[in-house]
Design a protein around this nucleic acid. Structure first.
Ligand code: SF4
Ligand code: SF4
Lengths: 142, 142
DNA sequence: TGATATAAGACTAAGTATATCTTAATTATC
DNA sequence: GATAATTAAGATATACTTAGTCTTATATCA
C-alpha cells in the first residue's frame, strides 16, 4: 500500500524528462507536454508552476508561450524534481520532525528510518535527467 | 508529504519490539502492549491480528490471554513486519504493477524506481529485532 | 456462570490525492 | 487596439485512504 510516489510527483518527472528530450532552453507548449507525457493539462499547469518557483523550468505566458528547461539535464536530479512537488521524502514522521515522537532520542527504530531515508534520497540524488536520457537511448537501441 | 510509513506500520514495529523485549514466547496482554508502546487498544487489535495471520506472533484469547512472539527476534526483520501491515513497499505504482503504465517496458525512470525500491527493501530486510534490541541497549548505556 | 479478554466486521471522521472549473492576466499577431 | 492563444490562481468537487471507534460475538479462566 504505502510508501509511494504521488501522481503529481510522477507527472513532474515526466514533464522534466519531456523537456529534457528537446534540450535546455527549447520552448514547448503545455499542450505538447501534456500530450506527449500523458498528463492532464490543468494538473500539469499546477505542477509546472511549482517547478518554475523552484527554478527548474521557466514558464512563458501568453500566445506562443510554454515551458523550457532552465538548467542542463545533467544538473537536474530526480530527487530535486520529486521533492519540489511532494516535499522532502520522509519514510516516517519522526525522521523529519523528531519532536513528533517523544521517544525519538532513544529509539533504535528511529535510526534505521533515518539511515534508510538518506540512502533512498542519495540514490535519487545520484540520478540526473542526462542519465535518464542516456538510459532511454540504450533501451531504444537494444 | 508523501512516501511515508503509515501509522499502522509504525505501531506494528512498536508492538513486535515490545514483545521482543520480553523475549520469545512470553505472554503479554494487549493492554500492556498498548500502554507500553502507546498504541490505541482497538487499533492494536487489528494490527496484531494481521501479524498473527502472518505467523509473527500468536494470540491467546479469553481471560488471561494476550500476545506472544513466535519466532526468535533475530529471525524477524523490519521488512517482514512492515510489509505484513502495509503490503509490499512500493515507491511507484509501476514497479509493483508494470501494466499500470504502458511505457514501463522502455522507461528509464521505471528502472530507477525498481532499483531504489529494492535497495530500500534490502535495507529493511537487513534489520532484525535482535539488532534493534542490541542498539536500544547501546543507546541506554551511553 | 460470570468476569476477562480477544475476534470480526461495520462504521465514522478527518485528511489527502487528483483532478476540474472559472475568472483573470499576459503575450503575439493582425 | 482588438483578437486569439496561452498560462495563472484560486475555488470547488470527488474519490480514496487513514486512523480509529463501536458493537456484537466468541473464547478462556476461575
Ligand atoms: S517509536 Fe521510534 S521509530 Fe517510531 S515514531 Fe517514535 S522515534 Fe520514530
Ligand atoms: S513513466 Fe516510467 S516511471 Fe512513470 S509510471 Fe510509467 S513506467 Fe513508471
Amino acid at each position: 500500500m504505502s510508501v509511494r510516489l504521488t501522481r503529481a510527483g510522477e507527472y513532474a518527472v515526466r514533464c522534466v524528462l519531456c523537456l529534457a528530450r528537446r534540450g535546455r532552453g527549447e520552448l514547448v507548449s503545455r499542450k505538447e507536454v501534456a500530450n506527449e507525457a500523458d498528463i492532464p493539462g490543468q494538473f500539469l499547469a499546477k505542477i509546472a508552476q511549482q517547478l518554475a518557483r523552484q527554478g527548474v523550468i521557466e514558464i512563458l505566458q501568453g500566445a506562443g508561450g510554454g515551458y523550457r528547461l532552465l538548467a542542463e539535464p545533467n544538473h537536474i536530479t530526480m530527487l530535486e524534481v520529486i521533492e519540489t512537488i511532494i516535499g522532502e521524502i520522509s519514510l516516517n514522521d519522526c525522521v523529519v520532525r523528531p519532536a513528533s515522537c517523544e521517544n525519538s532520542g532513544l529509539c533504535a527504530v528511529h535510526q534505521v528510518w533515518c539511515q534508510a531515508q538518506e540512502q533512498l534520497r542519495d540514490h535519487l540524488r545520484g540520478v540526473t535527467f542526462a542519465d535518464l536520457l542516456a538510459e532511454e537511448d540504450k533501451l531504444l537501441h537494444s
